[in-house]
Design a binder for these strands. Structure first.
Lengths: 140, 140
DNA sequence: TAAATAAGTAACTAACTTTGTTACAGTTAT
DNA sequence: ATAACTGTAACAAAGTTAGTTACTTATTTA
């Protein structure tokens, strides 16, 4: 599995927006901090926009701003905005229904995988952008 | 992220071995149940072998057998045997150290990502191949 | 009104991963 | 000797990702 950096880029982006609350932040500025191309950031901004986490403005002094307070944006909100696939994948082809294992394994694993992902997601749900921002401030 | 099916294939394989305890099970037999190519199964068997979960034998009546009781093989053992990458990825390039966010974000996210993965892994650690085998039997 | 700045977006590349496949060498039971 | 296995190399096809260039559209400001 090749894991994407979208989630990390998205958290980075929203943290930057939380640091400069109110002001429009352009993608170039964020890209410079995250050391990537502005288009990569803009693509992620589109996903965050679709999820209702930010709004953006074109033109001079344009950029992105948060639509919610940092306290009300959890990492789970962000995760769901930018990662669509599950952590675990079942078989690429449907297993043999004439085998007792093949006939049952997908149901069983589906439940287990859901439980495992939920456990992971509840950790993400417990952390807000505000907490990350504060941790950064505390460190300085 | 393109998630792999190795974990699912590996659980499927070990469950099959647990069902026919003692007997050597050939890759073709497992592949037929999982609806994939025998080489795919053999490649996964190599990983399970390296992790000490199975042994395998060449030649007529060859195949794979478990090296531990099904009760003593957890999904976490299997996961670690076949998936080497982390669920989450940090930035592909090192963030800008001259930015307060860039300077701190990787440490902060590293901790959070570890917590989230640990939560997921402890669910996997709580389930054994024996449980899966029993669930299959109960269903019939 | 012109210029400058920014998002939005399309198109493309390079690198990488994954599953599936063929082929064949080595091993072992019968 | 033969047949049935694993082990393994090599390759293709498909998909994803990050990065890049280039352009259109929107908006501010001088």
């Amino acid at each position: 599995m090749q894991t994407s950096s979208r989630f990390t880029f998205a958290i980075h982006t929203l943290t930057m927006l939380a640091m400069t609350e109110g002001k429009n932040v352009p993608s170039d500025f964020i890209a410079e901090s995250a050391k990537t191309n502005p288009v990569v950031i803009r693509r992620i901004m589109l996903l965050l926009k679709k999820a209702g986490l930010i709004k953006s403005q074109q033109g001079v002094h344009g950029g992105a701003v948060l639509l919610r307070k940092p306290e009300n944006i959890t990492l789970l909100d962000i995760y769901k905005a930018v990662e669509d696939k599950n952590v675990f994948s079942l078989h690429p082809n449907i297993p043999n229904p004439q085998c007792i294992v093949g006939r049952n394994i997908q149901n069983i694993l589906g439940d287990i995988f859901n439980n495992a992902e939920n456990a992971m997601e509840s950790v993400l749900a417990g952390i807000s952008i505000a907490q990350i921002k504060n941790t950064i401030h505390d460190k300085v």
